[in-house]
Design a protein around this nucleic acid. Structure first.
Lengths: 215, 215
DNA sequence: GAATGATCTTGCGTGGCGCGCAGATTTTCT
DNA sequence: AGAAAATCTGCGCGCCACGCAAGATCATTC
């Protein structure tokens, strides 16, 4: 890779990292482009060469992780039902590191501009996830809308879990809430499995949504 | 109702209608606040007393219809399974009038700023839908996250159907695509029914997602 | 290793937006 | 009718995205 390209990627990274940092600290509305640029050590005009808005800079961080989710999904054992694979991959993806992501997600989901940018970037960058799903259930992501639908629904589950966890602050830990949301949407994948069993194992639906009484 | 309140609502309506009209004609980016205000016959400053952004003004139109969806859902026969009720209500809701809504949805879902504003407004204004779902399955929308999750997932299905229909332009009519997307997410509701059967009828899952070969 | 061409950065100017403020205007209440 | 409350509007400020063109930096070729 060129020095040029490395530098470019470095400033891009510095910019989005600075944007997230400042947004987390002062709130996304109270951060000026000027500050982000200064924190990354470039001119404000240069900032605009990389991102066309504060929102895009902030969302670049969680969006970049979507590629990882695709890999996690592919890494699930081949015989595993689609629903189980999705639930586990998403859980892993949100709980491995001590996750600054949780604070970021909160911020993104609570701000209209951020949320919009995220959705838009999601549509563009969730292709790895869509492809992984499509591969797993032998569908053509171009003709069949199921893979995109499942990917989007998983995103919805994460979003609703986050919002529910933030607003109705019961004492439940976030992983619990996220897991419940994922188990609720799992039948969507399970139903698809039931039409084309992944291998020869089609005993029972792999995951049953737990009623809100937690263990 | 006061003269004052009627006038206020009238200008609000005029503003959002003008915003949608102009956005559809020239594209949402090529419409200035000044134009919207002029089209509605008020000062630009007044526009900002009603909506804090172009996006909010445009989204006010489809958001207002969400209340109607809630009513449609309640109007479904009491014995009907949740999944079937949801599918039918959403289909009705998108296909009754010749629907300028379709063009509006296209515009909203393709623009990041609009989409974000829509999601945010959705969260606030989908309460009628959430409540209707909660009532139908005897859940407390405050404690149980299932109603909000189902409502959001239905929204996701509409969105994905719209985007899929717009981008991969196969010759299929939109209602077909929408119906397929809804049938795909129906198992989410069906699974919940299976835990608490709505009445005494728990024979079969009410809707099976059709494979992509259309009739 | 130096020259040339491609690419990136930066300063400046322009057009637009969101909103606080305060005076004029309209509506409501007594 | 007159006082009080709510609303509309013009003005000004700070912020932002972006086009343009000059300078700085890197890649490639000889």
């Amino acid at each position: 890779m060129n020095l040029r390209e490395r530098k470019k990627e470095a400033t891009r990274r510095a910019l989005s990292l600075a944007a997230v940092e400042l947004a987390l600290e002062h709130g996304p509305e109270n951060v000026r482009v000027e500050d982000i640029a200064a924190a990354a050590g470039v001119s404000p005009r240069t900032y605009n060469n990389y991102f066309s808005s504060r929102e895009a800079a902030i969302c670049a961080v969680p969006i970049a992780r979507l590629q990882l989710l695709g890999e996690r999904l592919r890494a699930r054992p081949a015989g595993e039902p689609l629903a189980e694979a999705c639930v586990q991959a998403v859980l892993e993806h949100h709980l491995d590191r001590d996750a600054p992501d949780q604070r970021i997600m909160k911020m993104v989901f609570c701000n209209p501009a951020l949320h919009g940018e995220f959705q838009q970037s999601f549509k563009a960058s969730a292709q790895p996830v869509v492809d992984a799903i499509a591969e797993r259930c032998g569908a053509d992501p171009e003709r069949d809308l199921f893979p995109a639908l499942l990917a989007a629904t998983l995103g919805t589950a994460v979003r609703i879990a986050t919002q529910h966890w933030l607003e109705h602050d019961t004492g439940r830990p976030f992983p619990d809430v996220l897991r419940e949301a994922l188990l609720h949407v799992a039948p969507l994948a399970a139903a698809h499995d039931r039409h084309r069993p992944p291998s020869d194992d089609r005993t029972a639906s792999p995951a049953e949504p737990g009623r809100s009484d937690h263990p």
